[in-house]
């Protein structure tokens, strides 16, 4: 399978701080990849950097979209790709929609910007909203965002993102603000549409529960670096990296017997402003050895995936 989006050595610097440090990630046609991390991991900055949403942020490395380099492209060229070829939906549908503009206009806007006639754009907007399960979509094109619930707003956001038939959808915590039942509906819709249209989806999230049900592959970020990547089945069967293990173990789950205490990862997520030397995870890692404190580990291939951990290399960690 060919890559739609090939990220290589991506760096993101904000105000002199390295937020993302050399990220590699491949997104193949129709594939759903989850980028998992906690606060300060750089996962959201990665998403924003791919679309070059923040002009003040300096982005380095390489991002190939269908073989075309996006880094270093003039803003005008990026704009052609953004929205039409690579679309994005955000966490909070309330602030991402313009409260003073009718739903229909907002969904149709990406098409209108590309010269599609008003009538045709509106018709397509209604179709897209209908596919996303907005009831009586054609009648509600004239409604305003406040007339919609959170879940419905997120469907509107999705419709606006998907109306140009992009090749890639970047979804940054798209369901975090939603209730679980609505969350499930929205994820199912993304999954269906992506499958029908062959859209590759990059899901940015902190929630391992939704990753298991949604993604084909998962990459875990910690303090700006990818520490692990694998197929979901392999990852959830047993993460390779101590951080992945700890993260998965600390998720309370309804499908397991109750234990006395929840497993935890001690300490707090590393901040980009105070990135520990060596492996950034070592202060929280129970198994850390001397090498972890000085040398940054590189990604090693393990089975179907990769992980960056000295302990694995030394054979000190059971995978």
């Amino acid at each position: 399978m060919t890559s739609v989006l090939r990220i290589h050595g991506l760096t993101v610097d904000v105000g002199g701080l390295r937020i993302v440090d050399g990220l590699d990630l491949d997104l193949r046609k129709g594939e759903r990849v989850a980028l998992v991390g906690e606060s300060g991991s750089g996962k959201s900055m990665t998403a924003r950097a791919l679309l070059r949403l923040d002009p003040s942020v300096s982005v380095g490395g390489s991002v190939l979209f269908q073989g075309k380099e996006l880094i270093g492209l003039p803003e005008k060229e990026v704009r052609k790709v953004r929205g039409s070829q690579i679309a994005m939906v955000f966490q909070d549908p309330t602030t991402a929609l313009n409260p003073l503009q009718r739903i229909g206009e907002q969904v149709a806007e990406p098409l209108r910007l590309r010269g599609v006639g008003r009538r045709s754009a509106m018709k397509q907007a209604a179709e897209m909203l209908d596919r996303l399960g907005v009831p009586r979509a054609a009648e509600r094109l004239g409604a305003y965002p406040h007339e919609f619930s959170g879940g419905m707003k997120q469907r509107v956001m999705l419709a606006a993102a998907l109306i140009t038939r992009p090749k890639v959808l970047i979804a940054d915590e798209p369901t975090t603000a939603l209730d679980v039942r609505v969350q499930e509906q929205v994820l199912t819709l993304i999954e269906q549409l992506a499958a029908e249209e062959g859209i590759a989806v990059l899901l940015i999230t902190h929630d391992l529960g939704i990753v298991a049900g949604f993604a084909d592959r998962v990459a875990v970020m910690y303090a700006g670096r990818k520490v692990e990547e694998n197929s979901v089945d392999a990852f959830f069967a047993g993460p390779s990296h101590p951080y992945g293990k700890g993260l998965l173990a600390s998720v309370p789950r309804v499908d397991r017997a109750l234990t006395e205490r929840l497993d935890t990862v001690p300490g707090v997520p590393a901040k980009p402003s105070a990135r520990p030397a060596g492996c950034a995870f070592h202060p929280r890692c129970a198994a850390a050895i001397d090498r972890c404190r000085t040398d940054a580990p590189v990604l090693l291939t393990i089975g179907t995936g990769q992980a960056a951990c000295h302990l694995i290399e030394e054979g000190a960690l059971r995978c």
Partner: peptide
Amino acid sequence: KSLLAAVPVPDPAAERLRR
């Protein structure tokens, strides 16, 4: 019942089954 049924579980096989 519907709330409980929607709680995601970090287990791909279980999630596929549920869906």
